[in-house]
Design a protein around this nucleic acid. Structure first.
Lengths: 155, 155
DNA sequence: CCATCTTTGACTAATATTGACTTTTATTAT
DNA sequence: ATAATAAAAGTCAATATTAGTCAAAGATGG
């Protein structure tokens, strides 16, 4: 049913590798060739699906022997995770990024599935719809930071 | 006479699939073509016939490889309590009243203590502070209604 | 006739794909 | 060593591909 678009397919390919290994190092042009897309689409995939909100860091090097390395963030403890996410949120966050944050919370077992659902509902675009996107993103950021701070005292 | 109009036909088509499968994923334009209607009629069908009150949730994605996914969910008991609360909230609610709603949810065991705490954090006066009391109350109402609707079913 | 439901389409928004141009780094030639 | 060249990856904006919104027009039933 899914995987109709190539960005999703490339995402899945990389995440499959990352399910086994801590990190993956690729050649941008090789991956682009493998999936028959232009090289810059790899940047698009990374930028939209391997952000710090998603729990990944990315390094790269240009020139001969260049690479892109994607790594699952290795955080020491829950407080470390919360600090990182709060920092990444800043004072404005889109719904997409918000979902990524919730996914990371879930992956690190900082919230239950039910709690994650409630957060999704609270920060959903439909929910916060007030006809001003920037304000919506700011309110979403406030809600998420508030909740993340709250999680400090719980776990 | 039912099944006379196209919206009913499309509804029946989708529900027939959902009788066998837990969810159905469609391309809006494909379905529109199939029944020879404009794409936005699919939105109309979904909005009028696949609501959460009827036991369906809907997700979608735009862009290349976009889709609309309709999922059948298991509705829980206590729906009348939720309806009552949603009605009471309306489209604006103060923090004080919000706390009362959360208290009711807790008393009826519709949420756990932790979940209630998250809701409090999300709808806190400080969290939603944007310098416009009425707008804050409206946003709080939207958040709470959205969450109450999520409590209708089990993930 | 009136109220409600359905159908339509113009406009909007989100996401994906592409390619021209830039920047960085390594390698090779002088 | 320095300069030229090659070999990567990065940026950004244009275009393509979906779905969403909203209100007007049309149909239907009481």
């Amino acid at each position: 049913m899914q995987g109709k678009n190539l960005s999703d397919v490339i995402e899945a390919y990389l995440k499959k590798i990352l399910a086994n290994d801590e990190k993956v190092e690729i050649s941008r042009s090789d991956i682009a060739n493998l999936f028959d897309v232009v090289p810059s689409q790899i940047n698009y995939v990374i930028k939209t699906r391997f952000t710090i909100q998603n729990g990944y860091t990315v390094e790269s090097k240009r020139g001969g022997g260049g690479y892109i390395r994607i790594e699952k963030v290795k955080l020491l403890d829950n407080l470390d995770i919360l600090d990182t996410l709060i920092n990444a949120i800043g004072d404005s966050i889109s719904q997409r990024e918000g979902k990524a944050v919730i996914g990371t919370l879930l992956a690190n077992e900082l919230v239950t599935v039910n709690e994650a659902d409630l957060l999704s509902a609270a920060s959903d675009k439909q929910t916060l719809s007030i006809g001003n996107k920037e304000l919506e993103n700011e309110i979403r950021a406030k809600i998420m930071v508030s909740i993340l701070n709250h999680l400090r005292y719980k776990s």
